[in-house]
């Protein structure tokens, strides 16, 4: 995101603090990203729709408190969305779901063997089920949402070095167990 874009967003946010209608522009801009982020963690379109709406309602409630801290505004929305998803799972006491697109897995994994190895993917999914949830969360934000470590740290309420460490560890485990060439731009 360029500085000019950030400045434009901040101007919209300042207007939105006085007039909620102005926030509509940011709603349209980020709706799909936030919806997909929630959908990936629920695998339920209706539920993702509800949680996404609640995310934007909460954003509107808390807009007067919003301060620019060097992150794009979207990071703040991701944080609220993540909290909404966590609240949903706490309330319903279910296992957290990570619904990963096959296409994204293809993009993410440069396999040692050429072509799509169904068995390898099955083993990989099984293995990822055994990884700690916080590790999957970091991987999701890093590789599916293309967030940098600073943003991941803000979204998940941890330090930047903590986010890096968690990603390193997760990638290391996948590399050693599956001989995968995962890109890591630390």
């Amino acid at each position: 995101m360029t500085e000019d874009e950030i400045r434009k967003e901040l101007a919209i946010l300042e207007r939105s603090k006085k007039d909620s209608q102005a926030f509509g522009e940011l709603y349209e801009k980020y709706f799909d990203r936030i919806f997909n982020f929630i959908y990936r963690q629920t695998d339920d379109e209706e539920l993702a729709g509800d949680l996404c709406s609640q995310t934007f309602v909460n954003a509107l409630h808390n807009l007067p408190k919003y301060e620019f801290r060097g992150f794009p505004f979207s990071a703040w929305l991701y944080k609220i969305a993540g909290n909404e998803v966590n609240k949903h799972y706490r309330k319903n006491k279910g296992n957290k779901i990570f619904s990963i697109e096959e296409l994204k897995v293809r993009e993410l994994v440069e396999q040692a063997t050429e072509g799509w190895d169904e068995e390898l993917v099955e083993r990989l999914i099984k293995y990822m089920n055994e990884l700690p949830t916080d590790m999957i969360q970091v991987l999701e934000l890093r590789f599916f949402e293309d967030k940098d470590f600073k943003e991941i740290a803000f979204i998940l309420d941890m330090t930047e070095s903590g986010a890096k460490m968690r990603t390193y560890r997760a990638i290391d485990k996948l590399r050693t167990n599956f001989n995968l060439k995962l890109k890591y731009n630390g």
Binding site: D43, E45, I97, S99, I125, T133, I136
Partner: peptide, 19 residues
Amino acid sequence: KHEIRLRRQRLSARGSDRF
């Protein structure tokens, strides 16, 4: 605990537009 699911289809733009 969590559960990883592999989704064959990409969510269409129309899918999210409903909401």
